[in-house]
Nucleic acid binder design. Structure first.
Lengths: 344, 344
DNA sequence: AATATTAGCGCGAACGATTGAGCACGTACA
DNA sequence: TGTACGTGCTCAATCGTTCGCGCTAATATT
């Protein structure tokens, strides 16, 4: 296994031990024995010794020489968010299936960290980049537009630049959720948003408004609140609307964390779902079925987002000139449970 | 940023453009200008040009030369499990704070994948390894006992080999939980276990039995079930005990997934917590407070496990000879909510 | 004037793997 | 006897960085 740095098994060592050159050893171990007419004997002895010593080639050296590291970089805003953890799961599994390694960076929802992460990843010689951008700005991504460097965005994209992406069909998701609420008699639906300028948020707002429009329900900006996908935002915004005695009968939460925050505010206010208020949340997680009450959700195929993104990325790595589809949207699914009350 | 492989900015390029040798450039950019008495002028011009060209040194080349990659490997059984995601979060953040990168491998709860991951990581020249072992076997880890290679285990450890580890005080956690149940009048407590031969499981069983013993309650093996930390196990084991009409008034679930599985079985059986059955689960997550009912849990400091493990690992990397503490146990905390009923 | 010191920088090898070019030997054929 | 070819391997350069050693020229010391 050659874990001990000083005792690394190298081509040189194998060659010396067998009295042949590294060249020959390298060729044999790369399966080029035939092409370079290396004798069966030599080949056998090399293969045998390499196995005995548990030779594993240094990917550093190989990467330096070949400019191929079989490594991709993954930048995620917060790995402890189950949605992103699930994407990361899809990424690592699919990458591994293709013999690629993954270097993980946590940008901590911070553009500067994201930019720094890119630099670090490049210095490590990644062949491609999988980025779940934080989302406020894409200035630092502009250079990838014209570049041939393989990059794929996941979850969020930027309409103003053309970089391939994989995301959920957030428009449809929000539209379906809103539609479902409307069908159940709701007309005043609190729209609990995440970071405003991000594509998931904008698309979901569009979906929300489209559903309202389809039923001729006027948009009420007073109940469209929030500006971050985290729990704190869900809590404070819900609490504020409650204190302001705003009129609404349902909440559409744009993330699982927003939902949890809202739930906290509601339980503090002694309000119960669905009796006093109905709710639908984005992101489905195993626990959603066991909340009080079981939560109706818009499920995203988060693991598939990761997998699909890796596949796109590897395609671009293998043939950088073949044009890749600009964007891929994966379907969302409305999972009906018991958090929506039918208003007569 | 030098992302485009062919257009990489190298020392050579800077040197050529300035008419000086790479050596000098390297020294200046590594802050050794003074030590090697390089003139202020030269230094300035190099720094200026490097900044203009956005020079970022190749960590591949540096790693190859120095045998220092500033990279650690992280192997996790399942990144989509929030407990491990949280550890990973601690790891990436703490590693980044120390200028280290993290290569992530998902062993998918599979020893063979774990072994393969180790090989891949070593071939990438990691300086240290952070492993959340799958846990059934540690044969492949024996070689690290005598080796000077820095390795730290997280979450699980092996009594039969001496490798430093960071884990929760699972004994105390299970003991406290059981004790709390007993104090609330429970004497027949279902022990819903994870993978039997792992240290967390064994320690928790010991804690469970210790609490029973302290109250002179006999151990009932019929209600000590389960052999995997996942949701499916929680579901099927609970369901089976229910069908067998086993006598128990409370469940102690050894993981959040086990708890979710149990919850599913209970709701299928139309049993309600805490009215029909009480429950305590290991792992605290943001959603636990909003379950039906709010779940009493044993919280682990999962992110801190990751952080602490990285700190230990870096210490060992920096001074491989200094003896490190063999094991670190982080405290658990009983978080009382509403899933335990006080019997009469 | 001869020698010592200092400033300022370069040479060349090394890390480990890959690769095109080419060398030495044997055999076969004209 | 000369040459053409096949076999089986080695040489040396390369990727980008680092580092021990040492070089040259200018200034200082005796």
């Amino acid at each position: 296994m050659s874990m001990d740095v000083n005792s690394r098994v190298t081509l040189k060592r194998i060659g010396k031990q067998l009295g042949i050159s590294v060249t020959t050893v390298s060729r044999i171990l790369n399966g080029h024995a035939r092409r370079y007419r290396i004798s069966k004997e030599t080949e056998k002895s090399v293969v045998k010794l390499a196995a005995e010593l548990k030779f594993v080639p240094s990917r550093l050296a190989r990467g330096l020489r070949l400019n191929k590291t079989t490594t991709i970089g993954l930048v995620i805003p917060d790995i402890s968010n189950p949605f992103f953890a699930s994407i990361a799961n899809g990424v690592t599994v699919e990458a591994h299936r293709n013999n690629y390694g993954v270097i993980l960076c946590d940008s901590q929802d911070n553009v500067d960290m994201e930019i720094e992460s890119l630099e670090v990843l490049f210095s490590r010689g990644i062949e491609g980049l999988l980025l779940c951008p934080v989302g406020q700005s894409c200035e630092h991504l502009k250079k990838f537009e014209r570049s041939r460097f393989p990059i794929v965005l996941a979850d969020r994209y930027f309409p103003q630049i053309t970089i391939p992406y994989v995301a959920s069909d957030n428009f449809a998701g929000a539209r379906d959720a809103t539609q479902y609420l409307i069908e159940n008699g709701h007309r005043q639906i609190m729209c609990l948003q995440g970071l405003r300028n991000t594509s998931p948020n904008k698309d979901r707002v569009r979906g929300y408004e489209a559903a309202l429009a389809a039923h001729s329900i006027p948009v009420n900006r007073d109940i469209m609140v929030g500006n971050s996908f985290n729990e704190q935002c869900g809590y404070s915004e819900t609490r504020q609307l409650l204190e302001n005695k705003q009129n609404f009968t349902a909440i559409l939460a744009f993330s699982n964390l927003l939902m949890l925050g809202a739930l906290r505010a509601l339980s503090e206010a002694k309000l119960r779902i669905p009796d006093n208020l109905s709710m639908i949340s984005f992101d489905d997680q195993p626990y959603m079925a066991h909340l009080s009450p079981p939560m109706t959700t818009i499920a995203q195929e988060s693991s598939e987002i990761g997998q699909k993104a890796v596949r796109l990325l590897l395609e671009r790595i293998q043939s950088p000139d073949k044009s890749t589809p600009e964007g891929v949207l994966l379907p969302t699914r409305l999972i009906v449970r018991e958090s929506v009350k039918h208003l007569n």
